[in-house]
Every structure is written in C-alpha cells, then in structure tokens.
Amino acid sequence: MRWWTFLLACSAVAAAVFFAACWLANDYYFFAGYTVLQFVVLATAWNILGGYCGYVNFGSAAFFAVGAYTTVFFHKALPLPIPALVLLAGIASGLIGLGTGYLTLRLRGAFFSIATLALAVVLQTLVVNWNYVGGSRGAYVVRPNEVALIGSYVQYLFLIMLALAVGALAVARAIERSRLGFGFATIRDDELAAEASGVPTLKLKLIATTLSGALMGMAGAPFPYYIGYLEPASAFGLPYAVNAIAMPMIGGTTSWVGPLIGALLLGTLQQVATVTISSAVNLLLVGLLLVGFVIVAPKGIVGLVQPYWGRKRKRAEPP
C-alpha cells in the first residue's frame, strides 16, 4: 500500500468514526473519544523515538505541556485558529526535542532518558514561575460554543484530534518503510555497527527526537480549549508520561500498529475505569500492565498475535 492510499484508508475510517459519534448524538462520546485519540497521537509519537530508535523518553508530559502552553500563550497574545496553534506548538516542542537531543544524545542512552525526566521538572518550574501564562494558579481559556459548519466546539476539537491521529499514524508508517526507518532500526540494534555502515546516527537520532517531540506538542495544542482551565499540574501530569510509554509497550513497539492498539485499548479502558472506579485505581492498572507486559510479553500484543496471524508478512524494501 502506498502512503497516500494508507492516508486515504485512515481518513475513511476516521470519517466513519466521526459520523458514528455524531449519530450517537451524545457529547460524552466526543469528550471521551478526544482523550483516546490524544493518546493515539502521544503513543505513536513516543514510539518513533522509543520503538524505532530504542531511546526512552520519560518526558512526554513535558512535550505535551509545551504544546498546551503554546496555545495558552497565543490565546492571550495573538488569538489564532487551532490548526495554526497546532503548527506553532509542533514547532516549539520540536525545537525542545532537538535541543534536549543535541545536549544528551552523544552519551549513553540512559543519560538521554534521565535528561528527559529532568526536562519535565525544569519546564514545569519555568511555567509555575511564569505569570503571563497563569503561573501556578493556572489559566482560563474560554472556548466558543459553536463552530460554523461543524457544530458544537467539542465536535470541532474531536475532529482536529482525529486528523492529528491520522497524520501521526501516516508519518509513523511512512518512516517505517523508508530509508530513515531502516536507519532508525540500526540505531536500535547496534549504534557502533550503524556508524561503521555509514549511518549518521546522531543526525538520525536528532530527527527522531524532533519529530517525536513535535507530534507530542501538537497533541497538546488543543488541550487548553478542551479542558477550559489549564494548570501546570494537569498539563505536566504523570498520566501522559506513563501512558505514552505503556501504550506502545503493551501494543508492541516495532510497527505503527502497536501504539495504535495499545492506545485504543488502554485509552478506552481508562475512560471506562475513570467513570466506574477511581482514577487512581486505573493508573495503578496501567502501571501493573506495563510491568507485566515488559516482563512476560516483550513484543507486546502485536508480538503475541503475530504467530497466529498466518504467514509472516514480507517486509517492504526501502527505496
């Protein structure tokens, strides 16, 4: 399947999802669906660096928050439509990804991971001390009720996140089948051998951190409008960091399908669990699933299913 055929197929599925939600005529489904789709984007973005290159980012929440706070900043400084904000958020968090990568990617992988943990706290401290975007008190972002042509604002936000999810999946899948994806895999396998084979590992890792960071930021951009009131603790919340890791790990990290499955499964599970049980219990569940899967099923759900999938699909050749 060529990438645009894939994009078309994804869009068709997305349109079906959207109209199904419209048909249910209940805003709750849009609210819940938005969160699940947001996790699809986050998990897919995390996997571009984590799954393809083998570098663990613990700071997904930081990139997400950079996106969200870009929106808060422009909401006050220069009101722009959400698609423009998504783009700006992508640029801001992409640059942060590039910077973090540039500082730490020459070192052993563990140092990069530790640095991403640190990054989250540094950025959170900066935001807490930055009064323009609300400081520790948080900021209100008033959203309009209606959007022309689409209907309620929640539907509009849902549609944007749906588009982002389709975009993220298309990007991930395109990478997998390209020269870039092969280069990423050599980094995951053996960096020394990769360099000896002519792979510019530092450059590739920087591309991955930038892309991954940018996508996470884009996922965060509509969030202030969704939640209406953004405070540092919710934007930098641990659930984002944990889910961004747990979803690909549980789904499977070697292809775009894994994060998608993981996000749909865990995301939906959490939506249901938050309503029926407490949110702390459902986070505990995510933690237990994460630990359980990395020990028992290191290849995730995709790895568990693959043997029964019938013949193993042949990998596409790169251009």
């Binding site: 280069g183 895999a185 050599t186 396998d189 053996d190 020394l192 990769a194 084979s197 002519g198 792979v199």
Partner: peptide, 18 residues
Amino acid sequence: RPFPSMTVGDNLRIPLLY
C-alpha cells in the same frame, strides 16, 4: 556485530543505502 532485527539481506542494504 550484525543488526539482529534485520535479515542478512537488509544487513547489507544498510551500507548500500547509507
């Protein structure tokens, strides 16, 4: 130090590509 997740053919493809 082969790339363990790739086939023999893909192992050779890397230097050709890069």
